[in-house]
Design a protein around this nucleic acid. Structure first.
Lengths: 154, 154
DNA sequence: CACCACCTGAGACTCAATCTCATCTGGTAT
DNA sequence: ATACCAGATGAGATTGAGTCTCAGGTGGTG
């Protein structure tokens, strides 16, 4: 799905919810869809400030939970900083490997994990909305660097 | 492993790192090990304040990342509030089902997921330190209540 | 085209988390 | 024992992400 189609779909979703379409909300959605990776709420505020598009911090912060509720955004916790979000682009939910040292985020998909989660939810009669798996550790390069550092220190 | 053994092991870990053993650090570790479930940094500060044990907020906040680094604590994100932590008690790492409505946290273990993660890490030459899987949605009771509400609203 | 429930923005506010810096101390070397 | 100092501490100031307030604005329906 390309950006235009996605934007149309999202706008449609908003229109058919009980929400009003306002220039601010359109601007926020448009901006979100042009951000390639993860972003924080404040990144959004800053990005909107820099262009002529108008949407205040309060409005941005108010819209984010709504977009999560609608399944358009998903919260991604990096664990070190404040909240980050990403656009849900189905199909293919992905999980994250996060390097503790350099902060690199490697995305991967794993059907086996998806299936296992569905089974667990059935066992517990839990209705899954979203899930997020984050594996923290060291990426290939940082393993090398960390090991070198450790050797020279001892 | 009971609490005394765990405490001894943790103290040993601290002693053999480059860290100094201070009364404050001992107090914090002892307190952490007596908390049954998840806790926030501020819960810890409050708990220490209430007893005669002494450790300032700054000291608590300074020690938490160290304990995570040592693998003694793990960060658990509830996503709605500030950071929460839990003691790593091996074997049997568990994942979390989190109810968006009432906040209940259901823990579960799933060897299939653990295995899948190990495989993915091997594929990416990633050295795993920790992982956390959080599934958000509705618990059994809240599904019922949310559905009832939805019906009466329409 | 009038109406009003919903939306917005500026800025005050909250409070978890971090920083500062003067003082203290664990643990090693002497 | 004891002197020494890198590392640790605490009280309080500071930061900053996120929330709240409230007066005024507006989308969209009847």
């Amino acid at each position: 799905m390309n950006r235009e189609e996605l934007e149309a779909e999202v706008m449609d979703l908003l229109q058919h919810s009980e929400l009003r379409m306002t220039p601010q909300r359109r601007a926020i959605v448009r901006r979100i869809l042009t951000i390639p990776g993860h972003f924080s709420a404040d990144d959004l505020v800053t990005a909107l400030d820099q262009t002529q598009e108008e949407a205040s911090r309060a409005t941005v912060y108010r819209l984010i939970p709504v977009l999560i509720e609608l399944g358009i955004l998903r919260e991604v916790e990096h664990g070190y900083d404040h909240s980050h979000y990403e656009v849900v682009r189905d199909p293919g939910h992905h999980e994250h490997l996060i390097c503790q040292r350099c902060g690199e985020v490697i995305e991967f998909v794993c059907p086996a994990i998806e299936e296992a989660i569905v089974e667990v939810c059935q066992e517990h009669n839990f209705r899954q909305y979203q899930h997020g798996l984050e594996v923290t550790g060291l990426c290939e390069q940082c393993q090398q660097e960390a090991d070198d550092q450790h050797l020279s220190a001892s």
